[in-house]
């Protein structure tokens, strides 16, 4: 078969450039419209006292900020660990152990996110931001790690040779040739990791980590659909925005001159 790019793991990539374009424009517009409409609806209807306790600007902003914070911390951990680890694992002396790390990361992702979160909580007995961020980071690490490794490994060996041939040191070759050429794949991995992170962060409230999932839970437990819907829609909007930011990063940080 010709140049099929069937995607083998979790990824929100559409597999079509045109579809990516559609999303690049449609996604933020849809988010603004839907979130706007739901907020207008939630604030203008007559809320009872239980609803009013959740549906107020301060609470919504708090929960959103908690959610964003978890996502940011996870992103920082994922980039801080995934990219350097991936670079190290492509060095010739580290090749034998690379499959081991990939396998661990694979199992991390094959395990159900909620299970990882709950087990970490039960074992460490921590709670709050870190109890949520660390397991979510472990769960979201794989796409960045794998894409860093694959990205660097798929750099044309002739270019690496050429780099060495003109007298670059091996770190020169890594940072001036291999990593820049791997950037598009690393960014694609980062976007996938971000989507996983922002999605899993809705589960953070189970370990007292807050986030927009808490509103959904409150609404469900107290039987207040409005609270549930506001929480869920905000979570959806945030996820779509994060994905959109990932898409923008891919679009504008990828080196020019590569297609």
């Amino acid at each position: 078969m010709s140049s099929t790019t069937e995607i083998q793991g979790f990824s929100t990539e559409s597999g079509s450039r045109r579809a990516d374009r559609v999303r690049l424009f449609a996604q933020p517009v849809a988010v603004v419209v839907i979130v706007g409409l739901v907020l207008v609806w939630a604030f203008t209807r007559s809320n009872d006292s239980i609803e009013a306790e959740s549906i107020q600007a301060g609470v919504l902003l708090d929960k959103t900020w908690e959610h964003v914070l978890i996502t940011l911390v996870v992103a920082a951990i994922v980039v801080g660990i995934g990219v350097p680890l991936g670079m190290v694992l492509t060095r010739s002396w580290a090749r034998p152990v690379a499959p081991l790390f990939i396998a661990i990361a694979n199992i991390g992702q094959a395990a159900p996110a909620l299970g990882v979160l709950v087990l970490f909580f039960l074992w460490t007995e921590w709670d709050g931001l870190w109890a949520a961020a660390l397991p979510i980071a472990f769960y979201s690490l794989l796409p960045v790690l794998r894409n860093t490794i694959v990205g660097i490994q798929s750099v044309d060996p002739a270019l690496v040779d050429a780099g060495k041939g003109i007298g670059m040191s091996s770190s020169g070759v890594l940072f001036r040739i291999e990593v820049p050429l791997a950037v598009p794949l690393i960014l694609a991995g980062l976007r996938t990791s971000l989507v996983l992170a922002v999605g899993t962060a809705t589960l953070a409230f189970f370990v007292n980590g807050g986030g927009l999932g808490e509103l959904v839970d409150t609404g469900y437990k107290l039987n207040r659909v409005s609270v549930l819907v506001v929480g869920a829609v905000l979570a959806v909007g945030l996820a779509l925005l994060v994905d959109w930011v990932g898409a923008l990063l891919e679009e504008y940080l990828g080196p020019k001159g590569l297609t």
């Binding site: 929100t12 559409s14 374009r21 559609v22 999303r23 989507v195 999605g199 999932g213 996820a239 779509l240």
Partner: peptide, 19 residues
Amino acid sequence: SAVATALASTILTIPSFAL
């Protein structure tokens, strides 16, 4: 194709707990 994949990938972006 673009619309179908864009829609489907948008669904995938939605946090499962929220959906």
